[in-house]
């Protein structure tokens, strides 16, 4: 599966990642090479194999529905790029 510049642009958008125009071709060729590596798996019949979900087949542990953590908003917002009145600030989204 060859990845071209158009696919890189689509995927970069899905990943919310700006890619410099002059590097798109390079990323396309690197992605093509790594995905070619993955094609070795195509030779193996896996129709009757279950996909592995967890190395030791553990299931999701449930905990008691009880309040434990205390509010840490100030500590967490102290390291945020922009906050005001307990809110995280981003560029205006709604006109």
């Amino acid at each position: 599966m060859a990845v071209d510049a158009k696919v890189v642009a689509q995927i970069a958008h899905l990943a919310r990642l700006h890619i410099d125009e002059n590097l798109v071709t390079e990323y396309a060729s690197e992605m093509t090479r790594v995905l070619a590596l993955a094609e070795a798996m195509d030779d193996v019949d896996t129709d009757n194999v279950e996909p592995m979900a967890h190395p030791t087949h553990a299931v999701q542990r449930l905990r008691e529905d009880a309040v434990k953590e205390t509010g840490q908003r100030d500590a967490f917002q102290a390291i945020a790029p922009a906050v005001e009145g307990g809110h995280y600030l981003v560029p205006q989204v709604i006109e």
């Binding site: 970069a12 899905l14 990943a15 990323y27 690197e30 992605m31 995905l35």
Partner: peptide, 9 residues
């Protein structure tokens, strides 16, 4: 970035 792109793909 390369791995994010491959993984997203």
């Amino acid at each position: 970035k390369r791995r994010i792109l491959i993984g997203t793909y």
